[in-house]
Design a binder for these strands. Structure first.
Lengths: 207, 207
DNA sequence: TTGTGTGAAACTTTTCACAGCC
DNA sequence: GGCTGTGAAAAGTTTCACACAA
Protein backbone atom coordinates (compact mmCIF):
# COMPACT_ATOMS: atom_id res chain seq x y z
CA UNK A 1 0.00 0.00 0.00
CA UNK A 2 1.21 3.51 -0.88
CA UNK A 3 1.55 6.29 1.63
CA UNK A 4 -1.49 8.61 1.59
CA UNK A 5 -0.88 12.35 1.42
CA UNK A 6 -1.09 14.33 4.62
CA UNK A 7 -4.66 15.57 4.06
CA UNK A 8 -6.06 12.33 2.72
CA UNK A 9 -7.41 11.11 6.04
CA UNK A 10 -9.28 14.33 6.70
CA UNK A 11 -10.86 14.12 3.28
CA UNK A 12 -11.87 10.48 3.85
CA UNK A 13 -13.76 11.73 6.89
CA UNK A 14 -15.59 14.21 4.67
CA UNK A 15 -16.50 11.48 2.20
CA UNK A 16 -17.83 9.30 4.99
CA UNK A 17 -19.97 12.08 6.38
CA UNK A 18 -21.32 12.92 2.95
CA UNK A 19 -22.20 9.27 2.38
CA UNK A 20 -24.01 9.11 5.67
CA UNK A 21 -26.08 12.14 4.76
CA UNK A 22 -26.70 10.74 1.33
CA UNK A 23 -27.88 7.34 2.38
CA UNK A 24 -30.72 8.94 4.31
CA UNK A 25 -32.52 10.29 1.29
CA UNK A 26 -31.12 8.48 -1.66
CA UNK A 27 -32.79 5.85 -3.71
CA UNK A 28 -29.80 4.63 -5.68
CA UNK A 29 -27.36 2.44 -3.84
CA UNK A 30 -24.35 3.39 -5.90
CA UNK A 31 -22.65 6.74 -6.36
CA UNK A 32 -19.93 8.09 -8.63
CA UNK A 33 -16.82 9.95 -7.53
CA UNK A 34 -18.25 12.91 -9.39
CA UNK A 35 -21.49 12.99 -7.39
CA UNK A 36 -19.86 12.29 -4.06
CA UNK A 37 -17.21 14.95 -4.40
CA UNK A 38 -19.28 17.71 -5.94
CA UNK A 39 -20.74 19.28 -2.78
CA UNK A 40 -17.41 19.08 -1.01
CA UNK A 41 -15.67 21.18 -3.62
CA UNK A 42 -13.14 18.44 -4.15
CA UNK A 43 -12.32 17.08 -7.59
CA UNK A 44 -13.45 13.55 -8.48
CA UNK A 45 -9.82 12.82 -9.38
CA UNK A 46 -8.76 13.70 -5.90
CA UNK A 47 -11.41 11.48 -4.37
CA UNK A 48 -10.40 8.51 -6.51
CA UNK A 49 -6.75 9.13 -5.67
CA UNK A 50 -7.53 9.29 -1.95
CA UNK A 51 -9.27 5.92 -2.11
CA UNK A 52 -6.54 4.52 -4.32
CA UNK A 53 -4.08 4.60 -1.41
CA UNK A 54 -6.22 2.02 0.35
CA UNK A 55 -7.42 -0.29 -2.39
CA UNK A 56 -10.04 -0.69 -5.10
CA UNK A 57 -13.56 -0.04 -3.92
CA UNK A 58 -15.52 0.90 -7.03
CA UNK A 59 -16.73 -0.74 -10.19
CA UNK A 60 -15.84 0.70 -13.57
CA UNK A 61 -18.77 2.14 -15.41
CA UNK A 62 -20.87 1.98 -12.25
CA UNK A 63 -19.39 3.79 -9.29
CA UNK A 64 -19.20 2.90 -5.62
CA UNK A 65 -21.69 0.99 -3.51
CA UNK A 66 -22.79 3.52 -0.90
CA UNK A 67 -23.10 0.89 1.81
CA UNK A 68 -19.80 -0.83 1.22
CA UNK A 69 -17.85 2.39 0.76
CA UNK A 70 -19.26 3.63 4.07
CA UNK A 71 -18.10 0.46 5.77
CA UNK A 72 -14.70 0.60 4.16
CA UNK A 73 -14.18 4.24 5.14
CA UNK A 74 -15.29 3.57 8.70
CA UNK A 75 -12.79 0.78 8.87
CA UNK A 76 -9.94 2.87 7.46
CA UNK A 77 -10.71 5.65 9.92
CA UNK A 78 -10.88 3.17 12.79
CA UNK A 79 -14.52 4.01 13.50
CA UNK A 80 -15.72 0.45 13.43
CA UNK A 81 -14.68 0.14 17.04
CA UNK A 82 -15.27 2.52 19.91
CA UNK A 83 -12.65 4.65 21.63
CA UNK A 84 -12.38 6.09 25.09
CA UNK A 85 -11.18 9.65 25.30
CA UNK A 86 -10.14 11.87 28.20
CA UNK A 87 -9.95 15.65 28.40
CA UNK A 88 -7.19 17.43 30.32
CA UNK A 89 -8.27 20.84 31.54
CA UNK A 90 -11.96 21.44 32.08
CA UNK A 91 -12.16 25.21 31.78
CA UNK A 92 -14.55 26.80 29.31
CA UNK A 93 -13.32 25.00 26.23
CA UNK A 94 -12.69 21.66 27.93
CA UNK A 95 -16.15 21.69 29.45
CA UNK A 96 -17.75 22.42 26.09
CA UNK A 97 -15.88 19.47 24.60
CA UNK A 98 -17.05 17.15 27.39
CA UNK A 99 -20.51 17.20 25.86
CA UNK A 100 -19.68 17.82 22.20
CA UNK A 101 -22.32 15.90 20.28
CA UNK A 102 -20.23 15.04 17.26
CA UNK A 103 -18.01 12.72 19.28
CA UNK A 104 -20.52 10.27 20.72
CA UNK A 105 -22.13 9.72 17.32
CA UNK A 106 -18.91 8.16 16.05
CA UNK A 107 -18.09 5.87 18.95
CA UNK A 108 -15.81 8.39 20.59
CA UNK A 109 -16.64 8.34 24.29
CA UNK A 110 -15.46 11.11 26.53
CA UNK A 111 -14.98 9.10 29.65
CA UNK A 112 -12.98 11.25 32.06
CA UNK A 113 -11.73 14.76 32.66
CA UNK A 114 -8.61 15.89 34.51
CA UNK A 115 -7.86 19.19 36.15
CA UNK A 116 -5.51 20.69 38.71
CA UNK A 117 -8.06 22.83 40.50
CA UNK A 118 -9.18 21.34 43.79
CA UNK A 119 -12.70 22.70 43.48
CA UNK A 120 -13.23 21.06 40.10
CA UNK A 121 -12.03 17.54 40.83
CA UNK A 122 -13.69 14.54 42.42
CA UNK A 123 -17.08 15.57 41.15
CA UNK A 124 -18.99 15.23 37.92
CA UNK A 125 -19.18 17.90 35.25
CA UNK A 126 -21.77 17.53 32.53
CA UNK A 127 -22.18 13.97 33.73
CA UNK A 128 -18.52 13.07 33.42
CA UNK A 129 -16.12 12.34 36.29
CA UNK A 130 -13.35 14.87 36.81
CA UNK A 131 -10.17 13.61 38.46
CA UNK A 132 -7.01 15.23 39.77
CA UNK A 133 -3.89 14.76 37.63
CA UNK A 134 -2.47 12.37 40.22
CA UNK A 135 -5.13 9.83 39.25
CA UNK A 136 -4.24 9.95 35.57
CA UNK A 137 -2.33 6.70 35.30
CA UNK A 138 -4.90 4.80 37.33
CA UNK A 139 -7.90 6.14 35.39
CA UNK A 140 -6.32 5.75 31.96
CA UNK A 141 -5.46 2.12 32.68
CA UNK A 142 -8.76 1.30 34.36
CA UNK A 143 -10.89 2.80 31.63
CA UNK A 144 -8.67 1.84 28.70
CA UNK A 145 -8.39 5.43 27.50
CA UNK A 146 -6.50 5.59 24.21
CA UNK A 147 -6.95 9.22 23.13
CA UNK A 148 -6.43 12.46 25.05
CA UNK A 149 -7.51 16.01 24.41
CA UNK A 150 -5.46 18.81 25.95
CA UNK A 151 -7.46 21.94 26.75
CA UNK A 152 -5.31 23.48 29.44
CA UNK A 153 -3.68 26.92 29.44
CA UNK A 154 -0.57 27.03 27.27
CA UNK A 155 1.91 26.92 30.12
CA UNK A 156 0.52 23.67 31.48
CA UNK A 157 0.30 21.85 28.17
CA UNK A 158 3.84 20.50 27.70
CA UNK A 159 3.91 18.84 31.14
CA UNK A 160 0.45 17.40 30.60
CA UNK A 161 1.56 15.97 27.28
CA UNK A 162 4.60 14.33 28.87
CA UNK A 163 2.44 12.89 31.59
CA UNK A 164 -0.09 11.51 29.12
CA UNK A 165 2.69 9.85 27.13
CA UNK A 166 4.14 8.34 30.28
CA UNK A 167 0.67 6.92 30.98
CA UNK A 168 0.76 5.16 27.62
CA UNK A 169 -1.32 7.56 25.53
CA UNK A 170 -0.30 7.53 21.86
CA UNK A 171 -2.85 9.91 20.30
CA UNK A 172 -3.32 13.50 21.42
CA UNK A 173 -5.35 16.43 20.22
CA UNK A 174 -4.01 19.70 21.55
CA UNK A 175 -6.11 22.86 21.82
CA UNK A 176 -3.71 24.78 24.03
CA UNK A 177 -2.24 27.74 22.15
CA UNK A 178 1.26 26.32 21.84
CA UNK A 179 2.75 24.01 19.27
CA UNK A 180 3.52 20.81 21.13
CA UNK A 181 6.03 18.40 19.67
CA UNK A 182 5.73 14.71 20.45
CA UNK A 183 8.05 11.75 19.87
CA UNK A 184 7.44 9.86 16.63
CA UNK A 185 5.50 6.99 18.12
CA UNK A 186 2.87 9.45 19.32
CA UNK A 187 0.34 11.03 16.95
CA UNK A 188 -0.24 14.63 17.92
CA UNK A 189 -2.45 17.19 16.26
CA UNK A 190 -2.34 20.84 17.22
CA UNK A 191 -5.53 22.85 16.75
CA UNK A 192 -4.84 26.48 17.42
CA UNK A 193 -7.92 28.68 17.53
CA UNK A 194 -6.07 31.98 17.57
CA UNK A 195 -3.88 30.97 14.67
CA UNK A 196 -6.96 30.10 12.66
CA UNK A 197 -8.25 33.62 13.21
CA UNK A 198 -4.90 35.13 12.28
CA UNK A 199 -5.25 33.60 8.84
CA UNK A 200 -8.43 35.64 8.56
CA UNK A 201 -6.95 38.89 9.87
CA UNK A 202 -4.05 38.50 7.45
CA UNK A 203 -6.47 38.04 4.59
CA UNK A 204 -8.57 41.05 5.57
CA UNK A 205 -5.67 43.38 6.06
CA UNK A 206 -4.20 42.74 2.66
CA UNK A 207 -7.53 42.65 0.77
CA UNK B 1 6.05 39.73 -3.81
CA UNK B 2 5.77 35.99 -4.25
CA UNK B 3 2.78 33.96 -3.18
CA UNK B 4 3.33 32.32 0.22
CA UNK B 5 2.54 28.63 0.57
CA UNK B 6 -0.75 27.64 2.15
CA UNK B 7 0.68 27.00 5.62
CA UNK B 8 3.02 29.95 5.74
CA UNK B 9 0.63 32.26 7.56
CA UNK B 10 -0.03 29.72 10.31
CA UNK B 11 3.69 29.32 10.81
CA UNK B 12 4.21 33.09 10.96
CA UNK B 13 1.75 33.07 13.84
CA UNK B 14 3.91 30.48 15.59
CA UNK B 15 7.03 32.57 15.07
CA UNK B 16 5.30 35.61 16.48
CA UNK B 17 4.15 33.76 19.57
CA UNK B 18 7.61 32.30 20.13
CA UNK B 19 9.14 35.77 19.84
CA UNK B 20 6.70 37.15 22.36
CA UNK B 21 7.60 34.42 24.83
CA UNK B 22 11.26 34.91 24.10
CA UNK B 23 11.35 38.65 24.62
CA UNK B 24 10.17 38.17 28.18
CA UNK B 25 13.27 36.40 29.40
CA UNK B 26 15.92 37.07 26.84
CA UNK B 27 18.92 39.30 27.18
CA UNK B 28 19.98 39.39 23.53
CA UNK B 29 17.91 41.50 21.22
CA UNK B 30 18.63 39.49 18.10
CA UNK B 31 17.89 35.88 17.27
CA UNK B 32 18.87 33.49 14.50
CA UNK B 33 16.46 31.46 12.38
CA UNK B 34 18.03 28.43 13.99
CA UNK B 35 17.21 29.49 17.54
CA UNK B 36 13.75 30.76 16.72
CA UNK B 37 12.68 27.65 14.87
CA UNK B 38 14.23 25.02 17.09
CA UNK B 39 11.48 24.68 19.70
CA UNK B 40 8.79 24.71 17.04
CA UNK B 41 10.24 21.70 15.27
CA UNK B 42 10.45 23.68 12.06
CA UNK B 43 13.64 23.89 10.03
CA UNK B 44 15.53 27.19 9.92
CA UNK B 45 15.33 26.96 6.12
CA UNK B 46 11.58 26.87 6.30
CA UNK B 47 11.47 29.86 8.60
CA UNK B 48 13.71 31.89 6.30
CA UNK B 49 11.64 30.88 3.30
CA UNK B 50 8.41 31.86 5.08
CA UNK B 51 9.80 35.31 5.78
CA UNK B 52 11.24 35.56 2.28
CA UNK B 53 7.74 35.77 0.81
CA UNK B 54 7.30 39.09 2.61
CA UNK B 55 10.69 40.76 2.38
CA UNK B 56 14.11 40.89 4.00
CA UNK B 57 14.03 41.25 7.75
CA UNK B 58 17.35 39.91 8.97
CA UNK B 59 21.01 40.80 8.80
CA UNK B 60 23.55 38.34 7.46
CA UNK B 61 25.93 37.08 10.06
CA UNK B 62 23.73 38.47 12.82
CA UNK B 63 20.13 37.28 12.71
CA UNK B 64 16.83 39.06 13.27
CA UNK B 65 16.06 41.91 15.65
CA UNK B 66 13.49 40.42 18.03
CA UNK B 67 11.62 43.70 18.35
CA UNK B 68 11.44 44.55 14.70
CA UNK B 69 10.59 41.03 13.60
CA UNK B 70 7.74 40.99 16.10
CA UNK B 71 6.42 44.22 14.66
CA UNK B 72 6.78 43.03 11.12
CA UNK B 73 4.98 39.74 11.83
CA UNK B 74 2.18 41.56 13.64
CA UNK B 75 1.76 43.76 10.64
CA UNK B 76 1.73 40.88 8.15
CA UNK B 77 -0.85 39.05 10.25
CA UNK B 78 -2.99 42.18 10.54
CA UNK B 79 -2.62 42.24 14.31
CA UNK B 80 -1.48 45.84 14.49
CA UNK B 81 -5.11 46.87 14.41
CA UNK B 82 -8.06 45.48 16.34
CA UNK B 83 -10.91 43.44 14.90
CA UNK B 84 -14.49 42.92 15.95
CA UNK B 85 -15.75 39.37 15.81
CA UNK B 86 -19.21 37.85 16.19
CA UNK B 87 -20.18 34.28 17.05
CA UNK B 88 -23.17 32.59 15.46
CA UNK B 89 -24.62 29.88 17.68
CA UNK B 90 -24.07 30.15 21.41
CA UNK B 91 -24.43 26.53 22.48
CA UNK B 92 -21.68 24.84 24.46
CA UNK B 93 -18.89 25.50 22.04
CA UNK B 94 -20.02 28.99 21.02
CA UNK B 95 -20.34 30.01 24.66
CA UNK B 96 -16.86 28.75 25.43
CA UNK B 97 -15.49 30.80 22.54
CA UNK B 98 -17.25 33.95 23.78
CA UNK B 99 -14.74 34.13 26.59
CA UNK B 100 -11.75 32.44 25.00
CA UNK B 101 -8.75 34.26 26.45
CA UNK B 102 -6.46 33.89 23.49
CA UNK B 103 -8.58 36.20 21.35
CA UNK B 104 -8.64 39.35 23.43
CA UNK B 105 -4.87 39.29 23.87
CA UNK B 106 -4.41 39.82 20.15
CA UNK B 107 -6.91 42.60 19.57
CA UNK B 108 -9.66 40.22 18.54
CA UNK B 109 -12.82 41.39 20.29
CA UNK B 110 -15.81 39.13 20.49
CA UNK B 111 -18.47 41.77 20.36
CA UNK B 112 -21.77 39.97 19.71
CA UNK B 113 -23.40 36.57 19.62
CA UNK B 114 -26.32 35.42 17.50
CA UNK B 115 -28.73 32.56 18.08
CA UNK B 116 -32.14 31.37 16.98
CA UNK B 117 -33.39 30.30 20.39
CA UNK B 118 -35.81 32.77 21.91
CA UNK B 119 -34.64 32.06 25.44
CA UNK B 120 -31.03 32.84 24.61
CA UNK B 121 -31.41 36.13 22.78
CA UNK B 122 -31.77 39.71 23.95
CA UNK B 123 -29.71 39.04 27.03
CA UNK B 124 -26.06 38.89 27.87
CA UNK B 125 -24.03 35.70 28.05
CA UNK B 126 -20.60 35.83 29.62
CA UNK B 127 -20.90 39.59 29.39
CA UNK B 128 -21.60 39.68 25.66
CA UNK B 129 -24.90 40.65 24.02
CA UNK B 130 -26.74 37.86 22.24
CA UNK B 131 -29.05 38.88 19.40
CA UNK B 132 -31.58 37.10 17.23
CA UNK B 133 -30.51 36.40 13.65
CA UNK B 134 -32.87 39.07 12.40
CA UNK B 135 -30.65 41.72 13.94
CA UNK B 136 -27.54 40.47 12.19
CA UNK B 137 -27.28 43.12 9.49
CA UNK B 138 -27.96 45.93 11.92
CA UNK B 139 -25.46 44.72 14.53
CA UNK B 140 -22.72 43.91 12.05
CA UNK B 141 -22.95 47.36 10.51
CA UNK B 142 -23.31 49.21 13.82
CA UNK B 143 -20.38 47.44 15.45
CA UNK B 144 -18.20 47.18 12.36
CA UNK B 145 -17.87 43.41 12.71
CA UNK B 146 -15.44 42.05 10.12
CA UNK B 147 -15.01 38.42 11.19
CA UNK B 148 -17.58 35.74 12.06
CA UNK B 149 -17.32 32.42 13.82
CA UNK B 150 -19.94 29.79 13.06
CA UNK B 151 -20.65 27.42 15.95
CA UNK B 152 -24.14 26.26 15.05
CA UNK B 153 -25.33 22.70 14.44
CA UNK B 154 -24.31 21.44 11.00
CA UNK B 155 -27.73 21.81 9.43
CA UNK B 156 -27.93 25.51 10.23
CA UNK B 157 -24.43 26.39 9.08
CA UNK B 158 -24.88 26.88 5.32
CA UNK B 159 -27.76 29.33 5.73
CA UNK B 160 -25.89 31.22 8.43
CA UNK B 161 -22.88 31.49 6.15
CA UNK B 162 -25.00 32.89 3.32
CA UNK B 163 -26.56 35.38 5.67
CA UNK B 164 -23.19 36.50 7.00
CA UNK B 165 -21.91 37.02 3.48
CA UNK B 166 -24.99 39.02 2.56
CA UNK B 167 -24.26 41.18 5.61
CA UNK B 168 -20.84 41.97 4.17
CA UNK B 169 -18.71 39.54 6.17
CA UNK B 170 -15.62 38.42 4.24
CA UNK B 171 -13.83 36.25 6.80
CA UNK B 172 -15.40 33.23 8.47
CA UNK B 173 -14.19 30.53 10.82
CA UNK B 174 -16.50 27.52 10.77
CA UNK B 175 -16.69 25.01 13.62
CA UNK B 176 -19.88 23.31 12.47
CA UNK B 177 -19.16 19.73 11.37
CA UNK B 178 -19.72 20.32 7.69
CA UNK B 179 -17.36 21.55 5.01
CA UNK B 180 -18.73 24.92 3.96
CA UNK B 181 -17.71 26.33 0.60
CA UNK B 182 -17.63 30.09 0.13
CA UNK B 183 -17.26 32.29 -2.95
CA UNK B 184 -13.70 33.36 -3.73
CA UNK B 185 -13.89 36.85 -2.27
CA UNK B 186 -14.65 35.33 1.12
CA UNK B 187 -11.96 33.70 3.25
CA UNK B 188 -13.37 30.66 4.98
CA UNK B 189 -11.61 28.21 7.26
CA UNK B 190 -13.23 25.00 8.37
CA UNK B 191 -12.17 23.57 11.72
CA UNK B 192 -13.72 20.18 12.21
CA UNK B 193 -13.25 18.72 15.67
CA UNK B 194 -14.49 15.25 14.85
CA UNK B 195 -12.30 15.02 11.79
CA UNK B 196 -9.29 15.93 13.88
CA UNK B 197 -10.05 12.99 16.13
CA UNK B 198 -10.55 10.67 13.17
CA UNK B 199 -6.95 11.29 12.19
CA UNK B 200 -6.07 9.90 15.59
CA UNK B 201 -8.36 6.88 15.44
CA UNK B 202 -6.98 6.06 11.99
CA UNK B 203 -3.47 6.23 13.35
CA UNK B 204 -4.26 4.04 16.35
CA UNK B 205 -6.09 1.40 14.40
CA UNK B 206 -3.26 0.84 11.97
CA UNK B 207 -0.45 1.08 14.51
C1' DT C 1 -21.17 4.67 -23.02
C1' DT C 2 -20.08 5.35 -18.24
C1' DG C 3 -16.88 5.90 -14.70
C1' DT C 4 -12.94 3.65 -12.09
C1' DG C 5 -7.94 2.92 -11.47
C1' DT C 6 -3.65 4.65 -12.33
C1' DG C 7 0.79 5.99 -14.82
C1' DA C 8 2.58 10.36 -16.14
C1' DA C 9 2.60 15.42 -16.25
C1' DA C 10 2.01 19.59 -13.81
C1' DC C 11 2.10 22.09 -9.92
C1' DT C 12 3.26 23.16 -5.00
C1' DT C 13 6.14 23.06 -1.07
C1' DT C 14 10.26 21.96 1.26
C1' DT C 15 15.08 21.24 1.51
C1' DC C 16 19.68 21.87 -0.18
C1' DA C 17 23.59 24.49 -0.80
C1' DC C 18 26.09 28.42 -1.28
C1' DA C 19 27.11 33.45 -2.56
C1' DG C 20 27.40 37.44 -0.08
C1' DC C 21 27.20 40.50 3.86
C1' DC C 22 28.29 41.03 8.99
C1' DG D 1 33.36 32.29 11.18
C1' DG D 2 28.29 33.14 11.45
C1' DC D 3 23.91 33.62 9.39
C1' DT D 4 20.66 35.44 5.88
C1' DG D 5 18.60 35.44 1.27
C1' DT D 6 17.67 32.80 -2.54
C1' DG D 7 18.28 30.07 -6.97
C1' DA D 8 18.03 25.23 -7.89
C1' DA D 9 17.08 20.41 -6.68
C1' DA D 10 14.18 17.29 -4.39
C1' DA D 11 10.04 15.76 -2.47
C1' DG D 12 5.25 15.78 -2.09
C1' DT D 13 0.58 16.49 -3.94
C1' DT D 14 -2.86 17.22 -7.36
C1' DT D 15 -4.55 17.04 -11.95
C1' DC D 16 -4.57 15.09 -16.50
C1' DA D 17 -5.76 11.72 -19.61
C1' DC D 18 -6.74 7.29 -21.01
C1' DA D 19 -6.85 1.98 -20.80
C1' DC D 20 -10.07 -0.97 -19.40
C1' DA D 21 -14.08 -3.07 -17.11
C1' DA D 22 -19.27 -3.04 -16.67
Amino acid sequence: MKKPSKDTISRLALYLRALQELSKDRSSDTISSQDLSRELNISPDQLRRDLWYFGQFGRRGVGYSVESLKNKLSQILGLNKSWNVCICGVGNLGSALLTYKGFKEHNLNIIAGFDVEANKVNKKKNGIDIYPLEDMKKVIKAKAVKIAIIATPYFAAPAVMERLISCGIRAILNFAPIKLVAPPQVKLRNVDLSTELFNLTHFLSQA
